[in-house]
Write a protein that binds this DNA or RNA. Sequence first.
DNA 1: AACAGAATTTGACCCAAGTCAAGAAAGCTC
DNA 2: GAGCTTTCTTGACTTGGGTCAAATTCTGTT
Lengths: 248, 248
Amino acid sequence: MACEDMDTVSLHCSDCPIRHRAVCARCETDELDRLEEIKYYRSFEAGQTIIWAGDRMDFVASVVTGIATLTQTLEDGRTQMVGLLLPSDFVGRPGRNTAAYNVTATTNVMMCCFRKKPFEEMMERTPHIAQRLLQMTLDELDAAREWMLLLGRKTAREKIASLLSIVARRDASIKMQPAQGSMNFELPLTREAMADYLGLTLETVSRQISALKRDGVIALEGKRHVSVPDMDRLLSEAGDDSDGGFLV
Amino acid sequence: MACEDMDTVSLHCSDCPIRHRAVCARCETDELDRLEEIKYYRSFEAGQTIIWAGDRMDFVASVVTGIATLTQTLEDGRTQMVGLLLPSDFVGRPGRNTAAYNVTATTNVMMCCFRKKPFEEMMERTPHIAQRLLQMTLDELDAAREWMLLLGRKTAREKIASLLSIVARRDASIKMQPAQGSMNFELPLTREAMADYLGLTLETVSRQISALKRDGVIALEGKRHVSVPDMDRLLSEAGDDSDGGFLV
DNA sequence: AACAGAATTTGACCCAAGTCAAGAAAGCTC
DNA sequence: GAGCTTTCTTGACTTGGGTCAAATTCTGTT
């Protein structure tokens, strides 16, 4: 009935370099053409706001390349990141037509957009799409809850170690490698964005990164390239019960 | 195609005093009988753990009466609440068979459970159920993100004011009344549970409640009954941009 | 009504992270 | 490569909320 490996087999647009995780292709091959019809591309420069909270949203989209963030803000300007969008991540909410969060490009971003109305109609015709979206949303909810534990109960050092291991894990999964032993990767976020992610100030982020470097947990080449000699050490600094049910 | 007011019309089990928000009844009346077949009730005493993180989960459920919490814990015992389950809230994750969080009854709790396998089969036959669950999960995700803003960026006083206004709003919606003007309600949580919700210690919770009382924002009768002379005042203390897109 | 145990409040003290401020380093453009 | 701007680091100081400890109030129970 359902596709056997829904998690790995996804819709591959003919001209997108990524596989959109939203849709399972094997089960719904006859829907591919329709999806092609309603899609279009938009690109954004680093720093540009893609969507303002409260804006009318007439599309849903997949991130093709680059990194974007979801943020929320209090009147006095305090801001909290509530989502980090990497390539293949899904943006938008079927069944709602105004955006709830600011979406900002932190690097140059290419998005593959689908007009919302036809996408929703397609969801009604092809139940597996709704089921797949439900899976993805549940995964995001788990990620949000892990993030809540981080925000509410972890120390600054643990927060930084957690963020580094999350980025390392995502990076490894893109390269199709296991996240263990020694690793290097690029930090795709400024210190300020990291602070907004972690509920800290950028000064504290900087200090804790320096401390982890001083203690030999990580090494830096330039400001953005991180190498981790021992992932297990980093994970234990993060305070997680190693099993790794973690994400975004 | 879809039911017009999916949010208000929900499945009403013949002998449950609540309407389960998971399923739209108007569209799927012929499925009611099947749902009756696979359901059963379980009750739990205050303080009892309903599900341990990592346990095998062979059911999904609706809370019928009482209050339960989802919590996550670090090895050293620091705990963070990541979900608050009030009557009509849904527990469990179709497509996953181990629990990710501890579920604990904070009051006596009655749950209406559905065996997972048949429930999932029903989801495949009746697409609207998956769509309804998707809506609910997206709502929960929004709530989680609002909660992240609270955990990451609000002061202790703002956190308390936010929690009180959330409880007030939920309480009002149960009583089918608007959440404005002056209100009274019961606090269904201990100071410790509030602390776990807010990422604080119970001492800080107590101090901030005393401060809000001293400043006339709230009044207490006993330890648990709260009256709010002016909801607008409370909301402004909470730091939200009044519009009220808030929840759980 | 008297006791026991839990929940809550309050006080005194401390420290992790915030604030403010000054430099240093890394990217830019011309 | 000189002169920008932006990003990052580091220092000095402050403070909000944590910790530890001791009342106080609430809830039963007998």
